[in-house]
Design a protein around this nucleic acid. Structure first.
Length: 577
RNA sequence: GUCCUUAUAGCUCAACGGAUAGAGCGUAGCCCUCCGGAGGCUAAGAUCGAGGUUCGAUUCCUCGUAGGGACACCA
């Protein structure tokens, strides 16, 4: 148990004891009060008021009356709908910092731990093109959510679905067949996904002049589905190129998956489920033989599930995959990270699963997020106006190299390369994660590659600065138990401690809200507070060794939180910049 | 046309129906005899419009205006 748990639980237990009507899994709204004088922690009574059916300020008064001072809680004062607590500052500071440094931060504070695991599906690349900024946002969000689940004590499995079949892949294949001249990624010295993607763009260009190419694509898809050997072989070859290129990019951005599904392997399995439902009368057969479901009473219109020729459509494939994922994992929750343009699709999917009588359908969720646009509009891969992940990463790395060399001309080539990779990724990843997921992102290259202000670089810089101070200090960390940190009484020090204290609350909130940006913005706030403190107060001071040691432990705790917070966001740190 | 979604400072974003609407960029100034200036400090600067619900609305509801997205037997 951490300091926060002790303090929180003390208050929570007392409230539970005196207000029997509150459900045990109730999540209390603890916050930092807006100003120092008000106290160290505040409890907002708005949602309590709803449950207890009494005005919030009355609840606040009642809680305050019942609360008696003890070791940790020095006082509680009701101000309108808030109860503001003041803690014994010595115990508070010592508890918060020591438990961070002793790394006993058990982050999980869920009242009810799910027995089963979550599964989270994200990224979903197509094998006809390299990963672009849309994939990047998706992948970073999915990865961060997975980490948030894990940090909060929930098992989580990362899934990927590779879209390796369909009309879009056939376009690349046709173009390669016609103009590929047996070139390969090796002969052209190109990453496989870019190699294949170039043929996709080539197809779209040529098809503008020559629309008959579209007919050839249809024919190729038919041949592919009929199992034509030559077509299958070409498909396998190009898929392999594309997928290995895409995997290289995942490796580069430090993202991995626990289980990968391939659309080519699962696209047929939804059909049987639909046919069974048809027998039960849950959907209907049209005169031409197609199968349709009527969702008009739910405001979702009608939806074809099986075409007249017996082939299945997108939503039918997803029905099959939903069932497959259930069979594979029996998840307590199954999350799809997919952009908001597919909100309608997922409403339809979940409604159909419900109508078909799958009890697990209620555990399936769509984590919707806003699209990534360029300053002059939408990215369109057909028109070649996409920003690809490989390109932006390379560009940022080279900019970071320049910045490093400006400050440190004598750096070794190995350090330069390693540091620039980490710093470039930190800037890029943080840029995408600092936005509330629902928000659309306008990807303005100038801002996204900034190294100043609320950026990943700012966090790494604060971290590196702390490491630098610690390196110069030569203190023995094992002393932490004997040290009394009560001398950290400056405003800047107390602010830091309070913000360290709410780290777990932030992690929980970020998870519950499905919003890694809460964590991202918290880390910026913490680093800002550190920079203010650093600027105002001397840490290493031989004249006041006791205070100096306390301050060292304080900044060590700060750096531990920054590092762990960044870790959740999938961002690495460097000790020197 | 129907549905979903967004509108906060010059720009990009924060703010459980609640305490003085916060940051970053940009602008105008300032700070290295001192642990890393990729920093810090100061200043100016905002809730799209009209109604409604509420003790209280940036937040909820209605209408309007302006963006974005969906409404395929494409994925």
């Amino acid at each position: 148990m951490s300091g926060m748990d002790k303090l929180e639980n003390k208050i929570e237990d007392l409230i539970f004891k005196n207000f029997k009507d509150i459900p045990k899994d109730f999540i209390f709204e603890f916050n930092l009060p807006p100003s120092e004088e008000m106290g160290d922690l505040s409890l907002a009574c708005f949602s309590l008021a709803k449950i207890l059916n009494e005005p919030s300020n009355v609840i606040a008064d009642k809680i305050t009356e019942k609360l008696k001072a003890d070791g940790l809680i020095e006082s509680a004062k009701a101000i309108g709908p808030y109860v503001n607590f003041k803690f014994n500052s010595g115990i508070f500071i010592n508890t918060v910092i020591k438990e961070i440094l002793e790394k006993k931060q058990d982050i999980s504070s869920l009242k009810v731990k799910p027995k089963n695991k979550y599964i989270i599906e994200f990224s979903a690349p197509n094998t006809n093109k390299p990963l672009h900024l849309g994939h990047l946002r998706n992948t970073l969000l999915g990865n961060a959510m997975n980490n948030l689940f894990i940090k909060n004590g929930i098992k989580s499995v990362k899934l990927n679905l590779i879209n390796d079949r369909g009309i879009h892949i056939c376009k690349s294949m046709i173009a390669y067949q016609k103009w590929g001249e047996n070139k390969t990624p090796e002969t052209e010295n190109k990453k496989g996904d870019h190699f294949v993607g170039d043929y996709y763009i080539l197809f779209e260009q040529e098809a503008k002049e020559n629309p008959s190419l579209f007919r050839e694509v249809q024919e190729m898809l038919k041949k592919w589905e009929q199992g034509d050997q030559e077509t299958i072989q070409l498909w396998q070859k190009m898929n392999h190129w594309a997928i290995s290129g895409i995997e290289e990019t995942y490796h580069k951005i430090n993202v991995s998956f626990d289980k990968v599904y391939y659309e080519s392997e699962i696209y047929k399995i939804g059909k049987d489920i639909v046919l069974k439902a048809l027998k039960k009368g849950l959907c209907e057969k049209l005169p031409d033989g197609a199968v349709e479901i009527n969702l008009e009473s739910y405001g979702l219109g009608k939806k074809i599930l099986i075409r007249a020729d017996g082939t299945s459509v997108y939503v039918t494939q997803d029905i099959g995959l939903a069932k497959l994922k259930y069979n594979d994992f029996k998840p307590a929750k199954s999350i799809y990270v997919v952009a908001s343009e597919q909100d309608y699709h997922f409403k339809v999917l979940f409604k159909i699963l419900e109508i078909f009588g799958f009890p697990w359908a209620k555990n399936y969720e769509h984590f919707s997020y806003g699209m990534v646009n360029l300053p002059n509009g939408k990215m369109k891969s057909r028109e070649g106006t996409v920003v690809e992940v490989d390109d932006i990463v390379a560009e940022m790395e080279s900019l970071v190299k320049g910045e490093i060399l400006k400050r440190n001309p004598n750096i070794s080539p190995i350090d330069l390369s390693q540091r620039s990779k980490v710093i470039a990724l930190s800037a890029l990843k943080f840029f995408f994660l600092k936005f509330t997921p629902a928000q659309e992102i306008k990807f303005n290259p100038q801002e996204s590659i900034a190294f100043e202000g609320a950026t990943g670089t700012y966090l790494l810089y604060a971290y590196a600065r702390i490491q630098s101070v610690i390196r110069k200090a030569f203190i023995d960390k094992t002393d932490i138990k004997e040290i009394d940190l009560i001398n950290l009484q400056e405003n800047e020090e107390r602010e830091l401690v309070k913000n360290l204290f709410i780290f777990r609350k932030i992690l929980r909130e970020s998870m519950v809200e499905y919003n890694p940006a809460i964590l991202a913005n918290y880390l910026i706030k913490l680093a800002q507070l550190f920079n203010v403190f650093y600027h105002k107060h001397q840490i290493l001071d031989t004249d006041n060794e006791k205070l100096s040691r306390s301050r060292l432990f304080l900044i060590m705790a700060v750096s531990w939180i920054i590092k762990n917070g960044l870790d959740v966001l999938g961002i690495e740190t460097v000790n020197e910049m």
